[in-house]
């Protein structure tokens, strides 16, 4: 059953390997308010797919913003250090 406010993000990565790494790194931390936010992170080939389902628009905004901060950090790390010898 939906909590009323939902959003699906589809974020393309350069390869399915990198999308998979992002998915595994993000899935370690559970949402703190699990009764108000349901978040599912999966991949589809080279795409990272995140669905949010929240009890309020505010919770949705907070949750999406904090996940974006982490995704940006992951992509920066990939840019700087993937394939480094």
């Amino acid at each position: 059953m939906s909590l009323g406010h939902s959003l699906t993000l589809t974020i393309p990565f350069p390869s399915s390997r990198l999308a998979n790494i992002a998915e595994r790194a993000l899935n370690v931390d559970k949402e703190l308010k699990s009764d108000q936010v349901k978040r599912i992170i999966t991949t589809d080939d080279d795409k990272l797919i995140v669905t949010f389902d929240c009890t309020s628009v505010k919770m949705l905004r907070v949750s999406v913003n904090s996940l974006f901060d982490l995704i940006i950090m992951i992509t920066k790390t990939m840019d700087a250090f993937d394939g480094l010898e």
């Binding site: 595994r24 790390t77 250090f81 993937d82």
Partner: peptide
């Protein structure tokens, strides 16, 4: 803590 841990995890997976 989380900001740094996410980088540690990404590095571990990349390397």
């Amino acid at each position: 803590l989380v900001s740094v841990a996410i980088v540690a995890r990404t590095l571990a997976l990349l390397w």
